[in-house]
Design a protein around this nucleic acid. Structure first.
Length: 190
DNA sequence: CAATAGATCATCT
DNA sequence: GATGATCTATTGC
């Protein structure tokens, strides 16, 4: 993939905007890349569902840092979720990447996801995409504007309609419309 | 098909 | 000591 990472300024705005803007962009890790088709915004101090809601801790310190950094954490003792920090230092908004459409490195993804048959099941969920992309807690705090893990603009971005819904799998603020996805895309999670 | 159980651990109370 | 921004396999209709 020959594309330049999105600049830090891209992430330097409200998490909700960044979540929408990330749809259709390309997530790259080494030789593996995939199109972002589903995201969720987490607002920070005003959002009871956000990790940062309870303040700055060892775990959430990346969220309180500058934008364009990866926040990767372990959930349910077993799966890892990838977020990208948005907004500005001290304002812990972030965007959870929920589903991807695989583009390059398909063989690598399949090796990391043994037993998966259909291509759309490789990365159509937060825990699945980190496995497929080879993203782990080692990447927590990584700068996403440089290095081998980054997001870039698609060369020929296709037009799409943005769907909006409530976020998935949370208890608090469960009805806030902060989940965004590419309408009709096969790779969006269920 | 829909519903449910089990896996498994870092973080927080 | 309980919980969680999940996934998969299995059971039940």
């Amino acid at each position: 993939m020959k594309c330049k990472p999105l600049p830090r300024s891209f992430y330097h705005r409200p998490a909700t905007e960044v979540a929408r803007a990330l749809l259709g962009k390309i997530l790259v890790h080494g030789a593996v890349s995939a199109r972002i088709v589903e995201t969720e915004a987490y607002l920070g101090l005003e959002d009871p569902a956000a990790h940062a809601f309870r303040g700055l801790t060892t775990r959430t310190k990346v969220l309180f840092g500058p934008p364009a950094h990866a926040y990767v954490y372990l959930i349910y003792g077993m799966y890892e979720c990838l977020n990208i920090v948005a907004e500005t230092e001290g304002s812990p908004g972030c965007v959870l990447i929920r589903a991807l459409e695989p583009l390059t490195g398909l063989a690598t993804m399949r090796r990391r996801r043994p037993g998966v048959g259909r291509e759309e099941d490789l990365a159509n969920g937060p825990g699945k995409l980190t496995l497929a992309m080879g993203i782990t807690r080692r990447h927590n705090g990584r700068d996403v504007t440089r290095g081998n893990l980054y997001v870039c603009e698609s060369e020929h971005e296709e037009a799409f309609e943005t769907g909006v819904s409530a976020r998935i799998g949370i208890r608090h603020a469960a009805d806030w419309p902060l989940r965004f996805y590419i309408a009709g895309n096969r790779y969006v999670s269920k």
